[in-house]
Computed example of a mutant assay.
Amino acid sequence: MIALAFTGCSSDDGGSGTTPIAGTHKLVLKAETSGSTIHHILYGYDDEMTSVSGISETSWTSPEITLPDNASVANFTANAVGATDASTLKLQVFVDGVLKKEEVGTGTILSVRTHHNLR
């Protein structure tokens, strides 16, 4: 009976202050060119994709995306036209402010694609 009194009076409700909260990870994607102009971008995670056309800029940054707990993969594709064979297009994937993946293409017709597994 004494054992039941101690176990029944526990103040632990089974929860934990360190349990991750759904959607706590943030995804940001960046594209940067050298000697080229970005024209089209496709980005997102899993089947939640967004297409952006008519950019005509040398750099682009996505809005911050809050990822759900079950997100599997971040996808990022960009197309650009380089001025010379030495023109570059760099794609970067950041999760919670940390660079997780980087892909670079070189040339006059630039189509760079990358992904990062989120699990």
Rank of each mutant, 00 (worst) to 15 (best):
I2R: 14
I2L: 13
L4T: 12
F6A: 08
F6W: 10
F6P: 01
S10A: 13
S11N: 11
S11L: 13
D12I: 09
T18L: 11
T18A: 11
T18W: 05
T19P: 00
P20G: 08
A22V: 11
T24P: 02
T24W: 02
T24H: 10
H25Y: 05
K26L: 14
L27Y: 01
V28L: 10
L29Y: 07
L29P: 03
K30N: 14
K30S: 12
A31K: 01
E32V: 11
S34R: 06
S36P: 03
S36R: 01
T37H: 02
I38L: 05
I38K: 00
H39L: 11
L42W: 00
L42K: 10
Y43A: 00
G44Y: 05
Y45S: 03
Y45H: 07
D47F: 05
T50K: 03
S51F: 00
S51Q: 02
G54L: 07
G54P: 00
I55L: 10
I55P: 01
S56W: 08
E57D: 10
E57Q: 13
T58E: 11
S59I: 06
W60L: 04
W60Q: 00
I65Q: 07
T66L: 12
P68G: 12
D69P: 00
D69S: 14
D69A: 15
D69W: 04
N70Q: 12
S72M: 14
S72K: 15
V73K: 12
V73D: 08
A74L: 08
N75C: 09
N75M: 13
F76I: 06
F76M: 03
T77C: 06
A80P: 01
A80E: 05
V81Q: 11
V81T: 15
D85P: 03
D85M: 12
D85I: 15
A86L: 14
S87E: 04
S87L: 05
K90S: 08
Q92M: 11
V93L: 03
V93F: 01
V93R: 00
V95F: 04
D96E: 05
G97A: 11
V98W: 04
L99W: 00
L99K: 09
L99H: 01
K100L: 13
K101Q: 15
E103D: 08
E103R: 03
T108L: 06
I109T: 15
L110S: 02
S111V: 08
S111W: 02
V112W: 09
R113L: 13
T114W: 06
T114D: 03
T114H: 03
H116E: 15
L118S: 04
L118P: 00
R119Y: 12
